[in-house]
Design a protein around this nucleic acid. Structure first.
Lengths: 169, 169
DNA sequence: TTGGAATGTCAACAAGGCTGACGTATATTA
DNA sequence: TAATATACGTCAGCCTTGTTGACATTCCAA
């Protein structure tokens, strides 16, 4: 809660001009945000889609294909194309579920972990530089605004790992 | 400058875990950020690329094709495909430069302005809600971190409109 | 046992990136 | 003035990553 006491006083930060600035900040910053991993990826034969898959499999080892579909918000056909190349290249392995044998639980292999490491090192380096330059309280604000910008569904994914449907692994 | 006085004390905000959270926040928030305009666009035959073009032409009326290429960071072939449909549909018009007749200066038509308005209204509404929920100081931090996350080149575009090469219009 | 869920896969398509090559004004410079 | 460089457009072809639709398999649960 942002302090509703100053009604009319400092609502200046809601100016259209300020909002436009925020919009462009998102646009330009997102470019920077993806630039470093993109450079690494284009040397291999991978793209951003592979990065996302690898990231979330690393975050929640043993997650199912269905979970991943929900998080990434793409169709299974699209995800499957990406996963297949990751299987073929030995970066990800799928184990048939013990309880439910229809499910495939996804894990990074050593090779997969090492790619993940390379990608996230690069991305974290930029994030760390930005955090350091901005300072802790700015970071706090950064996270607060981004969180408020998400759809409710995404916010749940972001905050709780996941809660609604199924518990990964 | 973030206050270098607390060395070692509150550097906790630079944790890998915190950075990972920031990374995912960017990912999920960007989805929300583009969701509303995307919904409008898919009803017409346009995509995000059209949105970006329209946005920046609106921001800097009379900007040249070359300027737009720099800002958007795409190839002229890619931009041209988008611009052509915008011309054909009467959303954007190009005027031959007075000083340099090789240049085309881009302007939104009334129709273009009305699409731009619809798109940016939607996007601003979400941004406004996020800003309001987060409060002014969070917004300050949000902008600071995003700015620090940009490449130097993009930061120049973001801050000064543009300075290095050519003055738009 | 039967319906539906979870998954995989084939095929076709579209948007929007990219490269390379070429053409045409127009400007600038030697 | 002639040569070169710039701004822009366009044709052709390629790639990634998204989409829909259809269909098969396996398995859970009522």
């Amino acid at each position: 809660m942002p302090d509703p006491s100053n009604s009319g006083e400092s609502l200046l930060f809601l100016t259209d001009e300020n909002l436009r600035k925020g919009i462009e900040a998102m646009f330009f910053a997102y470019r920077g945000f993806t630039a470093d991993p993109d450079r690494i990826l284009e040397d291999m034969d991978y793209g951003r889609a592979h990065h996302r898959a690898v990231h979330f499999i690393n975050r929640s080892p043993g997650t199912t294909v269905g979970n991943l579909l929900t998080i990434l918000g793409v169709t299974k056909q699209s995800l499957n194309r990406v996963l297949r190349t990751l299987f073929d290249d030995g970066l990800v392995e799928a184990r048939v579920g013990k309880q439910d044998k229809r499910e495939r639980h996804l894990y990074l292999t050593d090779k997969g972990r090492s790619l993940e490491r390379a990608l996230s090192d690069a991305q974290r380096a930029r994030m760390r530089a930005a955090y350091r330059a901005a300072g802790p309280s700015a970071v706090q604000g950064f996270r607060t605004v981004l969180e408020a910008m998400m759809d409710a569904e995404q916010r749940r994914q972001y905050q709780g790992q996941n809660q609604g449907s199924k518990e990964g692994t």
